[in-house]
Amino acid sequence: MLLEIKNLHARIDGNEILKGIDLQVNAGEVHAIMGPNGSGKSTLASVLAGREEYEVTQGEIWYNGKNLLELSPEDRAREGLFLAFQYPIEIPGVSNTNLLKTAVNEIRKYRGEEELDAMEFLELLKEKSKLVELDHKFLSRSVNEGFSGGEKKRNEIFQMAVLNPKLAILDETDSGLDIDALRIVANGVNKLRSKDNAIIVVTHYQRLLNYIVPDFVHVLYNGRIVKSGGKELALELEEKGYDWIKNDKSEVTV
């Protein structure tokens, strides 16, 4: 098993957001996590990536045989975990190339591999930038600075392509994208799918799942996974909205 989350509870600023999440992901699978706003989707993504503001109060996360919660954010990345941010930050003065070169080489060093030389690295960038139809000029520009929303998301997927993670978490990568940008992003992701890696797609909308077809769909509500199913669950949610989940849930608890 690549990822196993057991009874995960997490809070921020004293508010409990995750209230007992259980999730298992195997290599080769694509999982979608859906849910209404405020259900805890982004919190789950942030906890997985290691954001320090979130405090895990209960539960465990096992990733590739390791206790994920004991790893620093950088070691999680070096172990092959990748988060595509919902709101990618702008870093003026750090070029995309510089970020990726440092990242690739620190990851290779961690794994005991040789650093890439300048030529090999450029080849890698060239090859991967085609995946998301990213212009070469982007590489020398500062990270996300002055990028449109769609460009920022494409850049996240481009980074994913270069770093080649075992487990990628896409946090609302579809939000704010027009249909063309959505297709480009989804195509990029699909080309990166393999039997060796897994993808968790966190989204509010079903639309993205027309392009990145999931093996499993989970509905997160009020900090718990309240329903799991196949890809048809996403369609059902699209049709009925989230209210029936909420009502369903209240019926159970009453």
């Binding site: 954010p73 930050i89 870093i91 003065g93 620190e106 770093l163």
Partner: peptide, 27 residues
């Protein structure tokens, strides 16, 4: 936030700090 972003890409604390300082000085 910027530092976390760099770390989430596998870049360690020290390199992330140095990158941001280079970036700060760059203008």
């Amino acid at each position: 936030e910027a530092k976390f972003y760099l770390k989430s890409r596998g870049i360690g604390e020290e390199s992330a700090t140095a990158m941001l300082i280079h970036a700060f000085a760059s203008d």
